[in-house]
Computed example of a mutant assay.
Amino acid sequence: MNIENIPCTKVAYIRQVGPYGDNNRQSMDKLKTWAISMDLLKEDSVLLGIAYDNPAFVEGNKCRYDTCLIIAEDSVINDTCIQEGRIQGGKYAVFQIAHTAEAVGKAWNTIFSAISSEGCQLDDDRPMMERYNFKLLKEHFCELCVPILSEKT
């Protein structure tokens, strides 16, 4: 676990509403196709997957998931299928994991105890993110970013 200050950042995104899973992957493919057509997908690009709702408390058909591409501040989006927004910045506990469905699922089941054991407090007002940095993806890794309020000093 690393602690990182993630800045407030401009993103292009597609929102998926419904059960998490295959639909999220389809949204990611759609965003990548759009980004390639706009010449925005580069070696240093960063994609994010942001789940806003916990399916244990929110009906599956109402769960929100944004597939995002970090873009330059001066970028203008002229596509009705792609929205423009910002991710909230702040302090995050960042976990690098293998980029497989099994590893991601296992990590989501274990990272909260790791955060707690490090003396960190979750920030429930900001969403958790999956971060896909192309350099890490080439090595078959991704990152889970969990918002925190504080850490041990």
Results as ranks from 00 to 15, higher is better:
Leu136Pro: 06
Leu137Phe: 02
Pro55Met: 01
Gln88Cys: 09
Tyr52Ser: 03
Phe57Ala: 09
Val58Leu: 05
Lys135Arg: 08
Cys120Trp: 02
Gly90Val: 09
Gln88Asn: 08
Leu137Ile: 10
Ile77Met: 06
Cys68Pro: 02
Asp29Gln: 07
Gly119Val: 07
Asn78Glu: 14
Asn54Arg: 10
Leu40Ala: 09
Ser45Lys: 04
Ser113Lys: 13
Leu136Asn: 13
Gly60Pro: 10
Ala56Tyr: 13
Ala51Ile: 02
Gln121Asp: 15
Lys32Arg: 12
Gly85Pro: 12
Leu137Asp: 05
Ser113Ile: 10
Asp53Arg: 01
Ser117Val: 08
Gly105His: 12
Asn109Val: 08
Thr100His: 03
Ile87Glu: 11
Asp53Trp: 05
Arg86Thr: 12
Asp74Cys: 00
Glu139Arg: 06
Asp125Gly: 14
Ile71Trp: 01
Thr33Leu: 11
Ser113Val: 10
Trp108His: 15
Thr110Glu: 05
Ile115Phe: 04
Gln121Trp: 00
Gln88Met: 05
Met38Lys: 12
Lys30Cys: 11
Arg126Val: 14
Ile82Ser: 03
Val58Gly: 04
Ile70Ala: 04
Gly119Ile: 04
Met129Ala: 14
Thr110Tyr: 02
Ile97Cys: 03
Glu118Met: 08
Ala35Asn: 04
Cys68Gly: 04
Asn78Leu: 13
Arg131Phe: 01
Leu69Asn: 03
Glu130Thr: 07
Glu43Ile: 13
Phe134Ala: 12
Ser75Tyr: 13
Leu48Val: 02
Lys62Arg: 14
Ile70Leu: 10
Glu43Asn: 15
Phe57Leu: 11
Ala56Gly: 15
Ala72Lys: 15
Thr110Lys: 05
Phe134Asp: 08
Ile71Pro: 00
Glu139Gln: 11
Ser113Gln: 13
Tyr65Gly: 03
Lys62Cys: 11
Gly119Tyr: 06
Leu69Lys: 02
Ala51Pro: 10
